[in-house]
Structures are given as structure tokens and as C-alpha cells.
């Protein structure tokens, strides 16, 4: 009888080990599958800081730490689990020395609270060189803004693109026809229509 009991205990112990091994294997398997299925990450280089973001906005909100050297007025970073986070996010107002930038950033922020990361944000290339300022950095795009006819925008979009894998969009209500046409022909993103832009950058 004791021998039978000992055999039973061994069997139970083995089963437990088996279960543990199964759970461990399943965990490893799920982790590697998740890693393989994870969306490609986008990378944005900001002076003095590097951060990687998922393409999906839904994956961003809780996990991504954000720092930058852009205009930090009214950009207090509350912990995402703070009870005040949503309220503060909804109330943010961006200030910029470029009036059109501030207007557009605040219109986007009004439409999608928390979507604007910063304004006038210095961007660096892979070698760490400062290449330009992003007028408006969103969670899913960078916008370069022009109040005038847009001279210099083509190169600015290209330079900005060296610092981020997010789409870079040119915007200006008075952009010239030749400029818009040529940027479009080259596959760039540009618009004069603010509401269209706001719709396009929806989270």
C-alpha cells in the first residue's frame, strides 16, 4: 500500500511538473508569437531623446513615455493612470511663436484630446544631427505648417522624414499651386484644407 501511495504521489508530482512545463512552454510560445505579430514600430528622433511608438494608437496610450524639447507650455505630463489625466488632456492648450501652428495644434487637440505630442519640436537624424523643427508632432504624424505660399516646404518635408518614420504632412491655407502639384507628384503629402487634414490625422 505505501508503495502504491508513493507511486501515486510521484505521478501527481510529475503531472504538476508537466503542467508547469506546459504553462512555461505556452508562455514562451505566446510571447514569441506576439513579438512576431507586433506591428512595425515607428521611430521618431527628437533632440536629446529617442522614442519608439507603435503604429497603432491604441497601443500607445498607456505604454509610451514621452519627452521632448518642444514647447512644453501646457503640456504637463500626468501619469496615464492619474484620475486627472483625461481632464488635463482635454484642457491642454498649445502655444507657439508661429500663430498658425498654435491654431492648428489646438484645433487638432480639440478634435482629439491628447493626440498632439508637441509643437516646434527639434528633430534629429540617425546620426544625431539636428535637422529641423517639427511644427506639430502628433502621435501618428508630423505636420509642417506654412502661412505663406510654401517656399522651402519640399525640402522641409524631406528633411523631417529623415528624423521620423511617421508620415510627414505639409499644410498651408495659401500654398502655391505649383508647389502642391510638385509635392504631390513626388509622392509627398500636402493639403490646403484644415478640416481634411484634421480628418486624415484622426487617431
Amino acid at each position: 500500500m505505501p508503495a502504491l501511495l508513493q507511486a501515486f504521489v510521484r505521478l501527481v508530482a510529475l503531472k504538476r511538473l508537466g503542467v508547469l512545463l506546459f504553462v512555461f512552454a505556452a508562455t514562451v510560445c505566446v510571447a514569441s508569437t506576439a513579438s512576431a505579430l507586433e506591428p512595425a514600430q515607428t521611430k521618431t528622433r527628437i533632440q536629446g531623446f529617442d522614442f519608439a511608438e507603435h503604429n497603432s494608437y491604441g497601443l500607445l496610450s498607456a505604454a509610451t513615455s514621452r519627452k521632448h524639447q518642444g514647447n512644453q507650455l501646457a503640456q504637463s505630463e500626468l501619469a496615464s493612470n492619474s484620475p486627472l489625466a483625461a481632464e488635463a488632456s482635454a484642457a491642454r492648450t498649445f502655444a507657439s511663436s508661429d500663430p498658425l501652428v498654435a491654431d492648428l495644434a489646438n484645433a487638432i487637440e480639440k478634435a482629439y484630446p491628447g493626440h498632439v505630442v508637441g509643437v516646434n519640436v527639434p528633430m534629429t537624424d540617425a546620426a544625431g544631427h539636428l535637422v529641423t523643427d517639427a511644427d506639430i508632432l502628433l502621435r501618428n504624424a508630423v505636420i509642417q505648417v506654412k502661412a505663406g505660399s510654401g517656399a522651402g516646404l519640399t525640402r522641409q518635408l524631406a528633411r523631417t522624414q529623415t528624423a521620423t518614420s511617421l508620415p510627414v504632412i505639409g499644410y498651408g491655407p495659401r500654398l502655391g499651386g505649383t508647389l502642391v502639384q510638385n509635392i504631390g507628384k513626388a509622392g509627398g503629402l500636402v493639403t490646403r484644407d484644415q478640416q481634411f487634414l484634421i480628418d486624415v490625422v484622426a487617431p
Binding site: L130, D133, S149, G150, T154, R155, T178, N182
Partner: peptide, 15 residues
């Protein structure tokens, strides 16, 4: 910051 850079594509942007 102010960036001063040569820009050879500006002429393609002008009317």
C-alpha cells in the same frame, strides 16, 4: 532655432 540651408528645389516650388 533658425536653419539656414542651401535649397536647390525652391525653383520647382515657385510660380
Amino acid at each position: 532655432r533658425v536653419y539656414v540651408l542651401r535649397n536647390d528645389v525652391v525653383s520647382d516650388e515657385f510660380e
